[in-house]
C-alpha cells in the first residue's frame, strides 16, 4: 500500500516538480547503482535533496531506496512522521546520537542487508546553502560494519537556491546533479575514506563550474 502511495506521490507530484518547474541536469546518470546494497553520499542544502535523488531512480526501484532523517524534526508531528517514514521511507535518527552510535546504526545496517540503497548526508544537516560543510564520520562507521558496500558520491547544486533552510517560498532554479565514481573496495581506514569522499565531492563541485550565490 505504501509502495503504491510512494510511486503515485513521485509520479504525480515529484516528477513534474523536479523536471518541469525546477529542471534537472544530470551528468553521468549511468554511474548510479543499478541495485542495492549501496550508499549514496550527497551534500545537503534543501528539503528537496531527497526528492531529487529518489526521482533519479525508476519508479519500481523506489521501494528499495531509504534515507535517514532527523527524528527531532520529522517525528515532531504525526502527519510529518507518517509522510517521512511511510511515503519517503526515511529511517529516523535521534539527533546527537548520530550515525556514529551503534543503536542508530542498526536500522541502516538492516536496510543495507535487505539490499536497499541508502541516501546519507554526511554534512549532518542542511547547512549554509550551496556550501559544503565538513563531513561527519557516519559513513565510515557503516562501511566498517558492513564492508564492501559501494559508496557513491553525488553532488547537487541549485536546490539550496530554490528552497534553502528556513525559507518557505520555492523559487525555480535548475538543479544540477553530478554523480562520481563509486568507492567500492573494502576500506578499513575510516578517516581515509571520509577524506577521499570529501575530496571527490569538492572535485565534483568544481567540475560543475557553478555561478556564485551570495
Amino acid at each position: 500500500m505504501n509502495t503504491i502511495l510512494r510511486i503515485l506521490f513521485f509520479m504525480v507530484f515529484v516528477k513534474p516538480l523536479v523536471q518541469v518547474i525546477l529542471g534537472l541536469q544530470v551528468s553521468n546518470r549511468e554511474k548510479l547503482p543499478p541495485a542495492g546494497p549501496a550508499i549514496i553520499v550527497a551534500n545537503h542544502n534543501s528539503h528537496l535533496d531527497t526528492l531529487v535523488l529518489m526521482s533519479l531512480f525508476p519508479a519500481l526501484q523506489l521501494a528499495h531506496i531509504r534515507t535517514v532523517a532527523n527524528a527531532n524534526y520529522f517525528l515532531s508531528n504525526p502527519w510529518l512522521a507518517w509522510f517521512a517514514t511511510r511515503i519517503i521511507g526515511a529511517i529516523p535518527i535521534q539527533k546527537g546520537s548520530g550515525l556514529g552510535s551503534h543503536n542508530a546504526l542498526n536500522d541502516v545496517v538492516n536496510a543495507l542487508r535487505d539490499q536497499n540503497i541508502v541516501i546519507l548526508y554526511p554534512e549532518g544537516t542542511r547547512g549554509e546553502p550551496e556550501k559544503l560543510e565538513p563531513f561527519k564520520r557516519g559513513v565510515a562507521v557503516l562501511t566498517t560494519v558492513i564492508s564492501g558496500v559501494p559508496v557513491y558520491p553525488v553532488y547537487m547544486h541549485g536546490l539550496g537556491k530554490a528552497l534553502p533552510k528556513g525559507e518557505k517560498l520555492l523559487v525555480p532554479f535548475i538543479c544540477n546533479v553530478l554523480i562520481g565514481d563509486p568507492i567500492d573496495r573494502i576500506c578499513t581506514n575510516g578517516s581515509k575514506l571520509m577524506r577521499e569522499l570529501q575530496e571527490e565531492m569538492e572535485q565534483l563541485a568544481s567540475k560543475g563550474n557553478f555561478p556564485e550565490w551570495s
Binding site: V171, P172, I174, P211, W213
Partner: peptide
C-alpha cells in the same frame, strides 16, 4: 529559468525572482 540558473544571483533577490517569474 535557464538564465537565472547560469548567472551569478544574489540571495537577497530570491523573492524578487518570483515577481519576475
Amino acid at each position: 529559468k535557464e538564465f537565472v540558473s547560469m548567472v551569478p544571483v544574489r540571495r537577497a533577490d530570491r523573492k524578487l525572482l518570483l515577481l519576475l517569474y
